[in-house]
Design a protein around this nucleic acid. Structure first.
Lengths: 139, 139
DNA sequence: CAATATCGTGAGAATGTTTCGCATTTGGAG
DNA sequence: CTCCAAATGCGAAACATTCTCACGATATTG
């Protein structure tokens, strides 16, 4: 039940929050922008404000229910936390997003941060390219 | 001479372009936002519009004179191309930016893209952390 | 149960960044 | 030196995101 997830995160189980969580869980696309979530809410007949969507997503991120990503082009997306850390590879043509994990890279990053004297808090790696489907389509 | 660099890039050597190129070359900070460049221009008594700064920086990027980066927090920065590809490690406290190159990671990225069937066009890797100086300051 | 403090919300205004439209200016080829 | 496409400055617009605020729902207290 979504209610419990919210309670566990220290958030009251309000309607907008439940709805937004449901949308993130049921969406075919793992990665959704605030606008996407907002549209999905309107489509399902809900009456929430865009500001609330942003507020709730930010709260979810703080509560570590979702993770946000800032892709090129100034557009951010959110995805449910689903256990393992992973990075992203995305198609510059169709916007498709795939995920991957690479232990070697993870380790190197730690090493690099350490070598530079930084205490690493986070990192983001995005690979941009053309996905298999778009390569076919295009001559 | 900047004029020549611009000509080589197929751009007319206009005053704003020359000035902006100079600013990028002389600035102590390698990474500047459009706003930074704009302020620097005003400080040196030039009369350019912010729109022109954006236009010119975009042209420079197309001409591969500069490279842009989109760090977290919705603000982009530009830096002069200076030969080697490199990635960035930045301090979440003071905004300091350092650069690094790691062949192992570069190779792994190619491998990952290939394995996923993508034809890689670009990639961006940012490591976030606390820099040595900020670690000292803070208890 | 009533009085009251707190929280979450929608709507719209505000902010910050980047782009656009258009009249005017300018670089540089002839 | 002249002329024109290219480039520019300006204000407005587009966009994503955040803030403000009054109100309604909820929890707390006596």
């Amino acid at each position: 039940m979504e209610n419990q997830e919210l309670k566990n995160a220290g958030l009251k189980a309000t309607l907008p929050r439940i709805k937004i969580l449901k949308i993130l869980e049921n969406s075919r696309h793992r990665h959704m922008s605030a606008e996407d979530v907002y549209k999905a809410l309107l489509d399902s007949g809900e009456d929430v404000g865009l500001a609330t969507v942003y507020r709730v997503l930010t709260q979810f991120e703080t509560a570590q229910l979702v993770k946000s990503h800032h892709f090129e082009g100034g557009h951010s997306v959110f995805e449910l936390e689903h256990g393992e850390h992973h990075d992203h590879i995305l198609c510059v043509k169709c916007g498709r997003v795939d995920e991957f994990v690479d232990e070697v890279i993870e380790e190197r990053q730690n090493l690099i941060a350490e070598r530079a004297g930084y205490s690493m808090t986070d990192h983001s790696l995005y690979i941009y390219g053309i996905c298999p489907d778009c390569q076919k389509e295009n001559g």
